[in-house]
Structure formats: C-alpha cells, structure tokens
Amino acid sequence: MKVSTQRLTMSLITEGDWSLFVSLHTNPQVIQLCFDTPDETVLKSKFESRLTPWEANSNTWLCMVIIDKLSGQKMGVTGFHLEDGIAEVGYLLLPEFHGKSYGTESLSGLMEWAYLEHGIAHYKAVVTEGNIASERVLGKCGFHLDMIIPEAHMIGGKTYSDHIYFRKIETYK
C-alpha cells in the first residue's frame, strides 16, 4: 500500500521505523502543542498498535511514513483512524520539514487516496489551541472549524482547548 504525490511517497509504517516514531513523539519542537512526552512503555504500545494491518473496516490506525521522493529521507508520519464513517486524521513532521507545505501535501494526498480507493468522504481533525501551523494545513486541505472544546487537556501543566475541524469530500477529479 503506497500513496504518491508530486514530492512525496507514503508507505505503511514498519518495525524499522521505530527511531523515526520515537523522534516524532519526543522532540519538543514537534510535540509542544500536541501532547506531553510519553513514557517508553506507552510509546512502544502506541507504535505496536500502528503496525497492525489496516483495512477499511478495521478499528486500527492507518499509519504511513512520509518519504521525500528525491532524497528518500523519512520526514514524518500521517494517517487516520476510521470510526462511524469518519476518518480522524493526524500527522507529525520532523522540525526540518516544517513550513515547506509537506504537511498539506501529505494530508491532501492521503485523503484523495482514501476517497478514491475506499470511498472515505468524511474527515475530522483535532488540533490543540495555539497550533496555528496545523490549523493552516487543515484550512489548505479544505477543513473548517466546527467546534471548540474548552480546557480539553493539559500539556506541560497548561490547560488547552481542542479545535475540532471537519471536511466532507464531494468529489476528486
């Protein structure tokens, strides 16, 4: 299973991607507006759950590694969890790839693939208050802010609201 865009290839995460996964979940520049650094047991469990084979009717996350086509460098992960016909999307990029539209390109490519291959037309994203870069990515990908849940969780001892975004795909050309 592979997804391809102009600059990127996305392929299923494998056991060999453990170091990338750790970097994405422990680098302060990546997680500062997402979550606190998980302990190793929680992180290992999360990683192993992402290795579970995904099918359109499964209850598991589809997790794909984002790879630069030219250099072959692994840049981050993207994916979604399907529940009641709505795919909740998520993505994390290493800091050196921030601000270069890779998040937008990978998310757009993933949604187009999911729509064309599996008919998934409804998408949701949860963004922490203040994560303006992720909100920009979602806006560029056609999402709209649907609701704000005040004081939804804590990161670093500070309480944040969750911004809930939705998108319905009508058609891809």
Rank of each mutant, 00 (worst) to 15 (best):
W54Q: 03
T9V: 11
T52S: 11
W61E: 14
G119P: 07
G142P: 11
L82M: 06
A152D: 15
L110W: 00
P38H: 05
I164D: 06
S58I: 01
S11G: 12
V137I: 15
E117R: 13
V89C: 15
L116D: 11
I13C: 07
V77C: 11
E83K: 12
M64A: 08
S4L: 05
E96N: 14
H98S: 08
R50F: 10
L33Y: 13
L20S: 08
I169E: 13
G72Q: 04
I155T: 08
L43M: 14
R167G: 09
L93T: 02
W18S: 09
Y102E: 05
H25S: 11
E170A: 13
A114I: 04
I31W: 03
L93N: 01
C141S: 12
V127P: 07
V127Y: 02
T78S: 15
A125P: 11
G85Y: 03
E88Y: 04
S19D: 15
N57C: 01
S4V: 14
T60G: 00
I155F: 06
L145S: 09
I169G: 10
I132L: 12
G90S: 13
S106D: 01
K46Q: 12
M111P: 08
E15G: 14
S49G: 02
I132Y: 08
K69R: 14
K158M: 08
S19W: 00
K2F: 01
A56S: 11
S134Q: 02
K168P: 00
M1I: 04
T128A: 12
M1N: 05
L107F: 04
H144K: 12
C34T: 14
F166I: 06
A121F: 02
L138F: 02
S11C: 07
Q6G: 04
